[in-house]
Amino acid sequence: MVKAGGMSLADALKKAKSGQTVVIDGTVKSGAVSLPAGVNLAGKNNATIDFSQTSGSSGRGITLSGNGSTLSNITVKNASDNGIFISGSNNTLKYVTCCYNEDAGFQVSNGGANNKFYNCKSHHNADAKGENADGFAVKLHSGEGNYFENCVAEYNSDDGWDCYAAHGAVTLVNCQANYNGYCDGIYGDGNGFKMGGVDNKTPGKAAHLDPLNHKLIGCTAKGNYANGFDRNNQSGVVTMKNCISDSNKGNNYHWPLTGKPSALGYKVTFGKAIIEDCTNINGKVNITGATLKGNCKGF
């Protein structure tokens, strides 16, 4: 048990073994911690971990580099970098909130695969320049099978979801990306669901397209400062089904057929996305690179 005035979170994690659960009771303060593989974190009494003691780019709140942990019913806030950074696989997060961190609330990178997120929220995360703090960043060599259900990204300085230089397709079910691109006076890109596509970050390899067949089912993008659903040079076949895009300041659906990614420097033709049974409300679209199917409304 970790609670104010008792054992620190860092000390509790040092003693914990795989299969054991460390319980957070109420609000506790902590420096940056790494969660050992297979060790679980669970909260009670509005459990909150305040990482305001962290500083600089090494100040990620919780790092999961191992496999098989479950985090549930906790809020992670005030980290000087990511709230939660995952490079491990097969971890599960349920009812976890990341907020007021100085980089992306949740980030999955460096091979992290098959991580599952249920009912997680990421809001009011902002970095100084506004260009990094996404709600959920599944990028920079993330692996296959990362899955999000009933998750919400709102009021983050950059994007809701960002899949820049991801190496594996993501699935999003009933997720929301709302009002991203501005947070407490800081502006960023502001796309709701930005689906990635170019990898120019692999050492020793030239910039290249990395086609991924992302799936978005029942997702909603509203009031974002740029596009609601954004290709972002993704050349895979992205499927959007039963999705709603409403009142975004750029395009509600931004799926051009061709583009000239700055990292490549030449024009390319992208794979055609599938927009099925989706709705467009109060906004324009560019869907030259998409096929409408089923009962689509407002296009």
Score class of each variant (00 low, 15 high):
78 N>E: 03
76 V>C: 05
84 I>H: 07
69 S>L: 08
69 S>P: 00
90 N>D: 15
73 N>H: 11
73 N>A: 06
76 V>E: 11
83 G>E: 10
71 L>M: 10
80 S>Y: 09
81 D>N: 15
90 N>M: 09
83 G>V: 04
81 D>V: 03
79 A>F: 09
76 V>R: 00
68 G>M: 13
66 G>R: 13
70 T>M: 05
82 N>E: 15
84 I>T: 13
75 T>R: 06
69 S>I: 05
65 S>P: 03
91 N>Q: 12
78 N>D: 08
91 N>Y: 10
73 N>Y: 08
76 V>T: 06
66 G>S: 06
66 G>D: 09
64 L>Q: 10
74 I>L: 01
83 G>S: 04
85 F>W: 14
82 N>L: 06
80 S>I: 12
89 S>Q: 13
90 N>T: 14
90 N>I: 15
66 G>A: 09
82 N>R: 13
82 N>V: 06
64 L>T: 09
70 T>W: 00
85 F>P: 02
62 I>W: 01
88 G>R: 05
83 G>F: 06
83 G>P: 02
72 S>D: 05
89 S>H: 14
79 A>C: 04
72 S>A: 12
90 N>A: 03
76 V>L: 04
68 G>W: 14
85 F>R: 13
73 N>C: 02
81 D>A: 03
76 V>F: 09
77 K>E: 15
70 T>N: 03
82 N>I: 08
81 D>I: 01
73 N>Q: 07
72 S>L: 02
88 G>V: 01
74 I>S: 00
79 A>I: 12
68 G>I: 15
87 S>T: 15
89 S>P: 08
87 S>A: 08
83 G>Y: 04
71 L>G: 13
73 N>R: 06
62 I>G: 00
80 S>H: 07
75 T>C: 03
75 T>K: 07
64 L>F: 11
71 L>F: 08
68 G>F: 06
72 S>V: 04
63 T>E: 11
70 T>S: 02
82 N>F: 10
79 A>K: 01
64 L>H: 10
81 D>R: 15
87 S>V: 11
87 S>R: 10
88 G>P: 00
63 T>I: 15
91 N>V: 10
77 K>P: 03
85 F>T: 04
